[in-house]
C-alpha cells in the first residue's frame, strides 16, 4: 500500500515537473537559437525598426508595435461587448440566457483560419467599401493623428476587429461565471434599498466581479497576442512601422508564420529572437495578472 502511495506521489511530481521543465526548455531553446542575433545587435534588436534581408539587418520593433496595437484595438472593442453580453445573459430568463450563452461559446469553436478567410473575403471588402469611407468621409476621423485617408481594407484596424470577435467568447465566459457568483442576497438587498438595475449592476455586480473582469481581460490579452492565422490574412504583412490604424503592419506571430519556411542564417535567428520576445511578453502578462489579482484580492474582501 505504502509503495503505491509513494509511486503515485512521484508520478504526480514528475507530471507537474514536466510542465516547468518544458517551460524552461522553450526559453532556453529560443535563446540558444537566437544567439546570433543577440551577439550581432544586442538589445538594439528590440528597438530597431529595420528589417532588410538583403543587407541582413533585423529589428523587432515593427512586429512588436503591430502585436501590441492589434491587441489593444481588439480589447477596446471586445471588452464592452463581452461585458454587456455577459450581464444580459446572466440576468436574462434561463432559456434565453442558455441559448445566447451557447451562441457566444460557439464563437470559440470556430477555427482561427476560418476567421482569417472570412476576414479576407468578407470583412476586408466591407472595411474598404463601407466602414473606412464612413470613418473618413462622414466622421472626418482622418483629422486624428492615428487615422489616415488612405485605406484598402487591410491593416491594423481590420486585424484588431477580427481578433476582438475571436477573444470575445473567452472574455464573456469568464465574466458570466463571475457575475453568476454574485450572491443573490447582495443583489436583492440593493433592489430592496431602492437601487435601479443600473445602480445594482454598477455598484454590486461590477464591484464584486472586478476580479473576473480583469481575469477576462488577461485571458483575452494572452489569446490576442499570439493569434496567428486570422491576423496573417488581413494585417497586410508589412515589415515597416505603421503610421496609423489603416496602415498595413505585421505581428510577431504573423512574421514567424510567413517567413519561417524559407529563412536561414541570420534571418532564422532573428525569427527565433522574435519568438523569444513573444514568449516573454505572454509570460510577463501571466505573471503580472496572477500577482495583481493576488495583491488586490484582500482589498476586495475575498478570502484567499
Amino acid at each position: 500500500m505504502f509503495k503505491v502511495d509513494t509511486a503515485f506521489k512521484w508520478l504526480c511530481l514528475g507530471c507537474a515537473g514536466i510542465i516547468g521543465v518544458l517551460m524552461m526548455g522553450f526559453f532556453i531553446q529560443l535563446f540558444m537559437s537566437s544567439m546570433e542575433i543577440w551577439n550581432e545587435f544586442g538589445l538594439g534588436f528590440i528597438v530597431s525598426s529595420e528589417w532588410n534581408p538583403v543587407t541582413n539587418k533585423y529589428g523587432a520593433l515593427p512586429s512588436i508595435i503591430g502585436t501590441l496595437s492589434t491587441t489593444v484595438i481588439a480589447l477596446i472593442i471586445a471588452l464592452p461587448l463581452a461585458f454587456c453580453a455577459a450581464l444580459f445573459i446572466v440576468d436574462a430568463r434561463p432559456q434565453m440566457g442558455n441559448i445566447l450563452g451557447q451562441a457566444v461559446d460557439l464563437l470559440a469553436a470556430i477555427p482561427s483560419v476560418i476567421y482569417g478567410m472570412w476576414g479576407l473575403f468578407v470583412l476586408a471588402p466591407i472595411m474598404q467599401d463601407y466602414i473606412q469611407p464612413f470613418m473618413v468621409d462622414k466622421l472626418r476621423m482622418d483629422k486624428l493623428p492615428w487615422v489616415s485617408d488612405e485605406f484598402n481594407g487591410f491593416g491594423i484596424l481590420t486585424a484588431g476587429l477580427i481578433l476582438s470577435i475571436m477573444i470575445l467568447p473567452y472574455i464573456c465566459a469568464i465574466m458570466r461565471d463571475v457575475f453568476q457568483m454574485t450572491p443573490a442576497m447582495l443583489k436583492e438587498s440593493a433592489y430592496g434599498a431602492g437601487c435601479t438595475r443600473w445602480e445594482t449592476t454598477k455598484d454590486i455586480v461590477l464591484k464584486y466581479g472586478i476580479r473576473g473582469i480583469l481575469g477576462g481581460v488577461f485571458v483575452g490579452l494572452g489569446r490576442a497576442l499570439g493569434e496567428t492565422m486570422a491576423v496573417l490574412f488581413v494585417i497586410g504583412n508589412m515589415m515597416g512601422m505603421p503610421d496609423n490604424i489603416f496602415s498595413g503592419a505585421t505581428t510577431i506571430s504573423a512574421t514567424l508564420a510567413g517567413n519561417f519556411p524559407e529563412a536561414d542564417g541570420m534571418q532564422r535567428s532573428a525569427l527565433f529572437a522574435l519568438g523569444l520576445i513573444l514568449l516573454a511578453m505572454s509570460f510577463a502578462i501571466q505573471v503580472f495578472a496572477q500577482y495583481y489579482l493576488h495583491a488586490t484580492s484582500a482589498k476586495r474582501g475575498e478570502a484567499r
Binding site: 496573417l232 497586410g236 510567413g258
Partner: peptide, 14 residues
Amino acid sequence: FGSSVKWPVGIGGQ
C-alpha cells in the same frame, strides 16, 4: 534584389 527584400511599400500576400 533578392528572394525577400525590404519593400518600400506594399501589402504582403502569401
